[in-house]
Design a protein around this nucleic acid. Structure first.
Lengths: 232, 232
DNA sequence: ACCTGAACACCGTTCAAGT
DNA sequence: ACCTGAACACCGTTCAAGT
């Protein structure tokens, strides 16, 4: 507030103090995240933006984790729908790639997604579409049910991992340390690592992501669940 | 310090103030984590335990993330080695399960592992063993190289996800919300979700983990990497 | 070189009191 | 019922000053 002398521009454009509501809180949270990243979306900062005290937010939001989950649910609305053309595999991969790309754009959200999954309409729609594509590919329903979970988890974890690296130079340094360790492995103590050499670190992140999707989709179609699909 | 009047028991047993060193710092950090969880392993708390100020730790540790990675590397020493008996698949799964079990015991560590991978001797040994098992199974080297990454990521992400749920009642509530949303999905708007019903949420975490390993191992063996293995 | 006191700039969450 | 001031109990990190 000390830094906002331009607030009362016009009463129509931006009311000095709109009534608090969950909807408005989440919207403001999304705005802060887009502008400054999820790490800035704190109860205190959000309250400041909404011209109130942090305690007031707790009337509408249970805690910070729930707030972050709500943001993700909101963002799920921005991902592209599965394209109408192509094989079911191509469309499935396109949708998953689009989901991952969204998380790549909002790095810290991926980590939040791993902790608290969204449960809103948008998330249900995504699951529904994925199930439809797997069904179209003739994947047995039980395998599809578990498969959706694994596919989304892989996409989310990949984004979370990559995201952290991009974010802080410290995390980057940590990754470099692994790179050096792999390259420096001795053929005596770690023959397989030494033999593979650069192959362990080869490929673009996108290539690896795509390969992972292929691996999962293939495996999901091949491996029966312990419950079994035929007797269900 | 206010709570530790028993400190100077004996100079041999527990010197009031051992010289600071990275080794001792990490050891103290592991101790706090075992006793109270990773969230209590803060620079301030750790400094208090070591009878110094937080600033002193920065001589040996770059930041909190690096400290957490060092703890994980340490813990990697406690996982069971791959058993000598059984098929390569059985031994591979046993090793991965053992890795995941360790992370399950120290929940928050799994999330830290997703952010900053360890790069110490222990992590290299784990990778080496996994590569050896995949080679024994006749998996082409390029696929094995990328496969190790995916397998460890899956194990880590699964632990991180499950861990968060176990930890806080809030995160648990968030998961329940998803459960309810899936169960309550209408057959009109979400036919596939409705048709699958309980199958989406069926199975024990262990069963799902094991199925996921099978899916990945199968896929890793089937899907060639874009670089190709034959021409390398 | 190594260590540290003190400060800077923050956090989440609770709760009694107000309207 | 809804909102909030103030407090409680913490954080990570930096840096000038000491030994």
């Amino acid at each position: 507030m000390t830094e906002h002398p331009a607030a009362p521009r016009s009463r129509r454009e931006r009311p000095a103090k709109p009534a608090l509501a969950r909807e408005g809180i989440v919207a403001a949270a999304v705005e802060i995240m887009r502008a400054e990243g999820l790490q800035k979306v704190t109860m205190r900062r959000l309250a400041q933006e909404l011209d109130t005290g942090p305690a007031s937010l707790y009337v509408y939001v249970a805690n910070t984790a729930e707030l972050h989950a709500a943001i993700l649910d909101e963002l799920l609305g921005t991902i592209e729908r599965a394209p109408a053309e192509g094989t079911w595999r191509e469309r499935l991969e396109a949708l998953l790639t689009s989901y991952t790309a969204m998380l790549f754009e909002h790095p810290s959200l991926a980590r939040a997604a791993l902790a608290a999954r969204p449960s809103g309409e948008r998330y249900l729609n995504l699951i529904e579409t994925l199930l439809a594509l797997l069904a179209e590919g003739g994947i047995p329903p039980g395998q599809a049910a578990w498969g959706v979970d694994v596919l989304l988890q892989y996409a989310t974890a990949t984004a979370a991992e990559q995201a952290t690296r991009d974010q802080s130079p410290d995390a980057d340094a940590e990754w470099d340390a692994l790179t050096r360790a792999l390259r420096g492995a001795s053929a005596d103590t770690h023959p397989h690592i030494a033999a593979l050499g650069p192959q362990l670190l080869s490929g673009q992140p996108r290539q690896r992501l795509s390969w992972g999707f292929h691996v999962l989709i293939d495996g999901i179609g091949h491996i029966p669940t312990p419950t079994g699909d035929s007797c269900e």
